[in-house]
Amino acid sequence: MSRRHIDLLLSVLPAWLVPLGLLGGIEIAMRITAIQSDGLALPSQVAAALLAAIADGEIFLRTAETIGAIAVGVPIGGILGLLLGVWLGLSPRAAQLASLPVELFRPIPPVAIIPLMMLIYGLGIRMEAAIIAFACFWPMLLLTRDAVLGVEPRLIEVARMLGLSRRKQITKIAFPAAIPRIFTAVRLTLGIALIVAVTTEIAANPIGLGYAIISAGLSLRPEVMYAFLIWLAILGWLLNAGLIALHHRLFGAAYGEVAA
């Protein structure tokens, strides 16, 4: 290991000390007290279950199913929400017409349409993707609308003084000005998508990580359940860290840094 690798390790290590120490403490405490419960598992058992799920590939299959549903649902709901949001942000008339329908449909909990989507699509990835799309559509719509409404009015004046056409005002000024906030909306939306995907799988859909968790619970194997929960935590963390890194890379210099 070079000097740089050691420095990197030392800088990352303290962040992991607390969770790892905590797990060690739990392991020791549980072995000493010999506590027994259907809802508990030794950290060492959980680690073994996680390794087993990795070894037989089940964890990757389940992850692919969940991520697959997200990868289909988020673009559909997100892009529709984005387009409509831009339109509502630009046209006060459209915003007025849409305000009542939006306020009526938006409060519907996405999981409440699970039965409806089961009727339409049956079980499987399509039904789950449709629910994710529905869940992502609303936040994307509202956040994009606000991002467009929040464009600095001075910039629009600059564009008008330069005689830019309405179309160029949108493509050269309004849209780029709104992009960092739209990107934040995408980040929030992906978080929502993960929640809705797993909820759908636990409640109804026999695929993905949510189904793996509920199956483990029903067959009284808490160590497998914990293994998948830890996997989900790592997945969510990676997703967010990746998106923040991408945000810095895309907009860092021009837009100033963003908060995590």
Binding site: R154, L155, E157, V158, P176, F251, G256
Partner: peptide
């Protein structure tokens, strides 16, 4: 507005495109 006329605003921080 006309392209024959240009205006320098006081709030340069808001009149420039931050992404350019």
């Amino acid at each position: 507005p006309s392209r024959d006329v240009a205006i320098v605003f006081q709030d340069y921080g808001r009149a420039l495109l931050p992404w350019r």
